[in-house]
């Protein structure tokens, strides 16, 4: 554990060197989210109604602000580039001879980057939460808040393993940017970070329910707002854990197969 903390510490310092870049990445997403909020203000103003698709204006604003914060924690850009490059440029060889687990090394670096973008994102969103404090509603209950935090954390792990799988296929492919990009594009809508999934027509919701992406934003935010029952929360967490276990299982299998194929090309 100690060595992974050391990796995290070194990664933290490395990313802090490029803090302006990270800050700009996060602030760009922040501006984009503010525009969506303006769209919903406009819809509620035009419709002159209290509720749209089961959401009051404060619920919708809270949902979108929460989704923005989760975005800065989870949905960061260029996920998996480093893993792809480490494998394809032969840098992996250097890690394999060290007394550490390479996937845990990558996970430590990933969590560290997430923590940094989360802090930057949180700072930006806190300002807007203060400005829109009339529209920002607190968590449904303290228990819901803790479950929300747990769901976000597990959503982050799910996200890591999903991209990890699509990065370590670099053992067989020269470039994995394409499949990772497709996943990112699907995620932009299927996580519910752009718009609550319950606003989609029923057949679309059916598709989204079959995918793991809703656990990254929609599910935690439903818990925060108290829009899901206890049984739905239990069912949701169970499904989330099944998805994580399945992805870990698949990733271990691909990793072992990949290592046999690895030829340290480029080293």
């Amino acid at each position: 554990m100690k060595k992974y903390l050391a990796v995290a510490k070194a990664t933290w310092q490395e990313y802090l060197t490029y803090r302006t870049n990270l800050f700009l990445e996060v602030i760009g997403g922040f501006v984009a989210q503010l525009v969506i909020i303006a769209v919903w203000f406009s819809i509620f103003r035009d419709l002159k109604t209290e509720i749209v698709a089961g959401y009051s204006l404060p619920e919708m604003i809270t949902y979108l602000l929460g989704a923005g914060i989760i975005n800065s924690f989870i949905l960061i850009a260029s996920q998996g580039d480093e893993i792809n490059d480490d494998i394809n440029r032969g840098k992996l060889s250097g890690f394999l001879v060290k007394p550490l687990s390479v996937p845990f090394y990558w996970l430590s670096r990933d969590l560290c980057r997430r923590a940094l973008t989360f802090i930057l994102g949180m700072g930006e969103y806190l300002v807007i939460i203060l400005i829109l404090s009339n529209y920002f509603i607190p968590p449904f209950s303290l228990a819901n808040f803790f479950m929300f935090c747990l769901a976000v954390l597990l959503g982050g792990i799910l996200h890591f393993f999903l991209f990890y799988i699509f990065s370590i296929i670099a053992f067989w492919m020269d470039q994995t940017w394409g499949p990772r990009f497709v996943i990112r594009v699907i995620m932009s809508i299927a996580t519910g970070s752009l718009i609550p999934l319950s606003l989609f027509p029923a057949n679309w919701q059916l598709v989204f329910n079959l995918l793991p992406f809703k656990f990254m934003a929609y599910f935690p935010l439903q818990i925060y707002l108290g829009k899901v029952s206890v049984s739905e929360i239990i069912l949701g967490f169970s499904a989330l854990l099944v998805w994580i276990s399945a992805l870990i299982g698949i990733s271990v299998w691909i990793w072992e197969k990949g290592l046999k194929k690895y030829s340290a090309y480029g080293n």
Binding site: A53, V182, I195
Partner: peptide, 26 residues
């Protein structure tokens, strides 16, 4: 990777249309 990227980029365009479709659904 090229063809998947093209597919991803085309999907991203359709997602914008889908987003508006969902907004106008409500």
């Amino acid at each position: 990777s090229f063809f998947l990227a093209v597919l991803g980029k085309a999907t991203r365009m359709l997602i914008l249309i889908l987003l508006f479709r969902v907004i106008y659904f409500n």
